[in-house]
């Protein structure tokens, strides 16, 4: 670029950016942007797209002698299944506080980790749990039922056998 002698500027004025500086700065910013976006792309890797956990839908066989209000816990599952005159329902036994497994008792459920207590319908009666235990979708008839841990149903929903 050319500067005429007449237009000599004060040294306090901002200098016009010469072309070479502009190209150089653009190159550096482009490199920075490329590094930033490739880093973002790389960070996608640790976020798992497919979860390796076992299927959330499983079959159970209810014991014939299951009394009303008594919990049946399928082996290896965090679910309690109940049968009474109104039908069959399943309540998740994963504590809504910090994920411990709650224990069914005669009054409801109790969490061993931080002392939350839940009523028989899963609602919180004491302790730090932020919300009531989830009711899960059940399907089936007789003693053969399928529990789906991924589908929640409104509390109180019972399936007729």
């Amino acid at each position: 670029m050319t500067v005429k002698a007449r237009e000599q500027k004060s040294r306090l004025d901002p200098e016009p950016m010469p072309r070479r500086d502009f190209l150089g700065l653009s190159a550096i910013w482009a490199m920075g942007a490329a590094l930033f976006f490739s880093l973002l792309g790389m960070l996608r890797l640790p976020k798992a797209a497919v979860l390796s956990s076992p299927s959330k839908k499983f079959r159970i066989t209810l014991p014939k002698a299951l009394a009303a209000g008594e919990a049946y816990v399928p082996p290896g599952r965090a679910v309690a299944v109940f049968r009474d005159d109104a039908g069959v329902h399943a309540i998740s036994t994963t504590c809504t506080h910090l994920g411990c497994i709650v224990k069914p008792t005669t009054e409801g459920f109790e969490c061993p980790c931080h002392g939350s207590l839940f009523a028989a319908d899963g609602s919180v009666t004491r302790g730090p749990a932020p919300r009531s235990l989830d009711w899960l979708k059940v399907q089936g008839s007789g003693d053969a039922w399928i529990v789906d841990e991924e589908s929640r149903v409104p509390p109180g929903t019972r399936e007729q056998a």
Binding site: P75, A78, H97, L98, C100, P112, C113, H114, P128
Partner: peptide, 24 residues
């Protein structure tokens, strides 16, 4: 399937655990 009871973190996190027992 069965939580340790009580399930305690290392000692320097137990102050935090005491507080999460109020609100996670």
């Amino acid at each position: 399937a069965v939580p340790e009871n009580p399930a305690k973190a290392p000692w320097y996190f137990l102050g935090l655990q005491e507080m999460v027992a109020f609100s996670a």
